[in-house]
């Protein structure tokens, strides 16, 4: 477990890297971190108007439904994309000093996660305004959030390793993310296709399982146990795979920068 020991030894650097990610993301914008709240709010409005009209959902909670899915999806897409680019982005450091390289992708996921937690304030606000009130089950929301974190770190590690060797992956991952998005049921109810032949595709998407359970907690329903099990196993497996592939290749990165 030298990796964890090193992480502790470099904790100052880790928090500096998280800070760097946040600072550079909003550099030169007037509102800064506030954007992490305004942006999802505006997106929610657009999606509600477009899909609410298109699909005929006029209930108020539909906005909460969209926003919750959208927030989780964008955390996943932004953190994995940031992790994918993290090794190249920190080229200046990697070429000159020794730093445990795992800090770069992990800090990239963590800084996006911090912004995501901030944006949950918006979700809380919107929920209360639109009449989705918290129940006891809301406390369980920490479970899908933890799975989401593990899954993002794992996927980030895999992508940062491959992305360092193959620049193309950046574009390929964008396309893959689009597929992930459409199979996440962000702006439609999965019941629409519940009984069709393609529902298994949704259930095979771990991010959809996380979103579905997150929504259950939010709306006071029960989590789907199959989805819970599947998404946790998938997340842990991804993390182990990511750690392994990263550690195996980390010394070669510098030759490709």
């Amino acid at each position: 477990m030298t990796g964890i020991k090193e992480l502790y030894r470099y904790r100052n650097l880790f928090s500096e890297l998280v800070r760097k990610g946040i600072v550079l993301k909003y550099r030169r914008s007037y509102l800064g971190v506030v954007w992490s709240m305004i942006e999802p709010l505006l997106t929610m409005m657009v999606l509600t108007v477009v899909f609410g009209t298109l699909l005929g959902h006029h209930e108020k909670a539909f906005s909460v439904y969209i926003l919750s899915g959208r927030l989780i999806y964008s955390l996943f897409s932004q953190s994995t994309t940031a992790a994918l680019k993290s090794i190249r982005q920190n080229e200046g450091l990697i070429k000159k000093v020794y730093v445990p390289k795992i800090l770069y992708p992990v800090s990239a996921v963590v800084f996006n996660y911090v912004l995501f937690i901030i944006s949950l304030i918006v979700l809380a606000g919107v929920s209360l305004v639109l009449g989705v009130y918290p129940t006891k089950k809301l406390l369980l929301i920490i479970i899908p959030l933890a799975i989401l974190f593990i899954f993002s770190v794992g996927a980030g590690l895999v992508l940062s390793t491959l992305g360092t060797f193959f620049r193309d992956l950046e574009y390929l991952w964008n396309v893959a993310l689009m597929l992930v998005m459409y199979t996440c049921a962000i702006f439609y109810y999965p019941d629409a296709i519940l009984h069709s032949d393609v529902y298994w595709i949704l259930k095979m998407n771990p991010l959809f399982c996380i979103i579905a359970n997150f929504r259950s907690c939010l709306f006071g329903g029960n989590m789907d146990m199959w989805m819970l099990g599947y998404s946790s196993i998938f997340a842990v497996f991804t993390l182990i795979l990511g750690y392994w592939i990263f550690e195996k290749n980390k010394n070669k990165f510098i030759l490709y920068l």
Binding site: K20, L24, G92, I94, K95, V97, Y98, V99
Partner: peptide
């Protein structure tokens, strides 16, 4: 170890 290799330290150019 404080290394300054090939004219510079490990800096971030955007920072």
């Amino acid at each position: 170890i404080a290394p300054m290799i090939e004219l510079g330290a490990g800096f971030d150019m955007q920072y």
